[in-house]
Design a protein around this nucleic acid. Sequence first.
DNA 1: TATTGTTATACTCTATAACTATA
DNA 2: TATAGTTATAGAGTATAACAATA
Lengths: 136, 136
Amino acid sequence: MNDPLTAFPGYSLRRAAHASSSELATRLGTIGLRQSDASVLMLIGANPSATASALGRHLAIQRANMVPLLKRLEDAGLIERAPIDGKSQGLALTQLGQDRLDEARQVIESFEAELILRIPADHRDHLLPALEAIWR
Amino acid sequence: MNDPLTAFPGYSLRRAAHASSSELATRLGTIGLRQSDASVLMLIGANPSATASALGRHLAIQRANMVPLLKRLEDAGLIERAPIDGKSQGLALTQLGQDRLDEARQVIESFEAELILRIPADHRDHLLPALEAIWR
DNA sequence: TATTGTTATACTCTATAACTATA
DNA sequence: TATAGTTATAGAGTATAACAATA
């Protein structure tokens, strides 16, 4: 089939992200996490007592959409909240959350390693800086 | 904020695709098209009398999800269907569809040109081959 | 006044299963 | 038997508006 789309980096970006994302989602699913769950756990792990709003801003997830996400993690016993002041609450991993994060990190790191290996060596080191120029 | 995610190409791939995708969606919205609409129009334009199933396979859109998409394009008077045999139907652009495709192409091409310019020159030519290695 | 957390809601995208009719 | 088109449906991601309480 004649394909005028694949010449566009933007189109390939979408297709590559979708393919890679589906694969990672499947793997994280085996430990009961979504990609957004894993992102939030990693960010809380690296920033104990961060607030929901701050995490959302950093991850480009809106405040309103953080609510069910955090509720899910809390209901699963992975995170807990502690009041900072009357308005904000700091988030932290429980021990179970820390353990789950360790599992997630293993899944993600082996996934990322395989992803990088798929890229021909002469293009490999250019990918991350090129992508960051697009969204950062 | 301490961020362990941005070191991962897979994460940056998602963020870059989302950022780029939102921007293009906004621009295509001004001419009344979604990204999937524009993709399908471009593919029909380059492959007259292609079937819905074949387009879907090529674009990674499932048969079932092609139905409302094509109905929308047909209702808007952009495409028409012609029976190939008792089972399949070939898709073609109407004159209105051809005109809309020309508009979409302008939007996409200027978008893609800007996207490429955002990437530092020494990384620029590596992006497309790296992305294609991921999903093709 | 701006921000935090929240509720409610809606739209889009994606996925699966099942059905009919035809190749 | 496999394929094309279709229906119905569900899950997930994303977006906006609005509200109360607090900084």
